[in-house]
Design a protein around this nucleic acid. Structure first.
Lengths: 336, 336
DNA sequence: CAGCACGCATGAAACGATTCATTACTAGAT
DNA sequence: ATCTAGTAATGAATCGTTTCATGCGTGCTG
């Protein structure tokens, strides 16, 4: 026998199993001497509650699942921290899954979470999962989308207005007199990428002579950014953009490395660069990075709150969309 | 009824529950037409296995717990990724807990993991948890220590030789002619911090006239680093060290920001700076950061492998200590 | 003193999947 | 016709906890 059960504790303390359970869950219902006898037995046997059994009985768990696009991205670690803090306060546990921008891994995590009977799911989606989420909801597992504005208003979501954010970034570049803007980012199936680009396009359309070129990437990582940056550096100078808007800060930092590798291209003199997220490292970059700040921890915390409220609601919960405003942070990479 | 059970499936398919279970777990034992009837019932009811029930019956889970010092530190995200990849391949799930360098949170996660009956624990310890780990082991839950060399040889561990790493960092600074070295790091209760400092001291002792000053920090974060950097910047120039060894890269990046805030202090001319971990952002810092590289993902993967082997061993498993060598990476922050 | 309420403790039932000893049936051998 | 071997399906027992209807005893009220 690896570990002791309530039955063992009950036997040793000379009481019934129901009483042991009462000591554990409703101490006020149990007399003092029985409580102490049971406690002694628990200590002596090293009894530890079996969560699986509790959960089976209870029917639902005290976990909520969180699927992020990239666990290495400080934006998401911050978001997760915000969610975890709120969860801990409510006696919940957060299970974090990393989809790595891969729809198959995302699906696998949703399956896992469903088998675990999580109380709800926080999701930063890749691709179109709405049908699956509707299915989950039908089975009693609500979802709150994070960092994404839904067009489907039947789901709650907490996001930053990426359209406006993209617009702010591009407007900033345009206000500096830059006209040939390159948008570095991808894959475009990721909503945040598409929205930020759309915002940029909107800003550019209002300025005659301004253009946007899209430089696609496979993922939103430093490595992808570096590749894109190098590609741009290797162009004849006349073919280079005079400003780059990267879909997030990881990409931007990679772009920075790619551009400056040989000291060829000067940022911001030749090319102004702005990122997105304002991660902690952005301020510490070779050339401190201008960026669009998102309240990451707050997004996580708010989403978790919404989720718990939705999970507790008996029925007919009103889905809520919360959108935080983005904020422009100007640093040396756009104003040398 | 929120979700269907095997019983419902069995009833609909007109077979016994045992048969449904067989379809799920030993398809080869079941005739083709029964299998298809059961499958149809599963699909129709949207049946999803209840993990809690399986686990209760099985006695042990398919999860392993991982507790890291700081989930926002890229070193640990990398380590976690390494562990997760290996775990996924072995059909295990990794539950990640963030102790935040806080012994109480660490203890809480260990309690949680024990209640979940995890198969084993990967731990980057804060403070002295050995007694607790021995208790866990007594209850069938093995632990592998990561990023830490144990003095207690009864536990397996995977680590980088921090003593040597510290020595390498300091030797590098000394070889550049620097003599007044400041070690920025803390709390010293964290083994990695203590070891890296001890290594630095060792190197310094061999060079006449060289000294080490310790500048303590509360945590190993960018913020703490910035505070330490500012404190040093605000000293009269003569009182400043001519080199700084930061206990990790986050601190080093903070120190860099703190020193350069007013453009006062030049790195590396006035103060050479080296960090530890070689996180992805180190190369992209204002002044690209020299550092001591650790194979983070490999550490995580190796630790997980060791853990699974230990968990499967019936008894009398030989604890193994694996130590990877650190590697010096020289960049502009020490050789302008 | 009957009747009642109250405080504590009891123990069987339930949660859902898995296992395994048992049964049912078929086909082939004698 | 009888026996054996083998395949397929069965269903009760099990894991550990919680819940809840029930029982027991004590003391209070009318």
């Amino acid at each position: 026998m690896v570990s002791a059960s309530v039955k063992d504790v009950a036997a040793l303390a000379g009481v019934s199993v129901g009483t042991v359970s009462n000591v554990l869950n409703r101490p006020e219902k149990v007399s003092a001497d029985v409580t102490s006898r049971v406690q002694a037995a628990i200590d002596q046997l090293g009894f530890v509650r079996n969560d699986a059994a509790r959960q089976l009985r209870a029917g639902l768990s005290h976990s909520i699942g969180l699927v992020v696009l990239d666990a290495a991205n400080p934006f998401f670690t911050e978001l997760a921290r915000g969610a975890e803090d709120k969860a801990t306060a409510a006696h919940f546990t957060v299970l974090v899954g990393n989809s790595n921008e891969d729809a198959a891994r995302e699906a696998a995590y949703l399956d896992l979470f469903e088998q675990q009977r999580v109380r709800g799911v926080l999701l930063s989606p890749v691709g179109n999962v709405i049908p699956r989420l509707e299915q989950l909801r039908g089975r009693g597992i609500p979802t709150v989308l994070v960092d994404r504005q839904t067009d489907n208003l039947s789901f709650s979501s907490v996001a930053v207005d990426d359209l406006t954010g993209g617009e702010m970034a591009a407007s900033h570049l345009l206000s500096l007199g830059r006209r040939r803007i390159a948008f570095v980012g991808g894959p475009s199936s990721i909503r945040q990428v598409a929205d930020r680009l759309a915002g940029a396009r909107k800003a550019v359309q209002e300025v005659p002579g301004a253009t946007v070129e899209v430089v696609g990437t496979d993922s939103l990582t430093v490595l992808s950014g570096r590749a894109a940056g190098e590609a741009i550096r290797l162009r004849p100078a006349a073919m280079r953009p005079d400003a780059i808007f990267a879909a997030n800060d990881l990409l931007a930092m990679g772009v920075l490395q790619g551009l400056m590798l040989m000291g060829d291209v000067k940022v911001p003199e030749e090319i102004a660069l702005i990122g997105y997220d304002d991660i902690e490292f952005a301020a510490a970059a070779v050339v401190p990075l201008s960026s669009i700040r998102q309240p990451s921890a707050l997004i996580g915390a708010t989403a978790l709150e919404l989720l718990l409220r939705e999970a507790d609601a008996e029925a007919g919960f009103m889905p809520t969309q919360i959108v935080f405003p983005p904020e422009l942070v100007v640093r040396a990479s756009t104003t040398g």
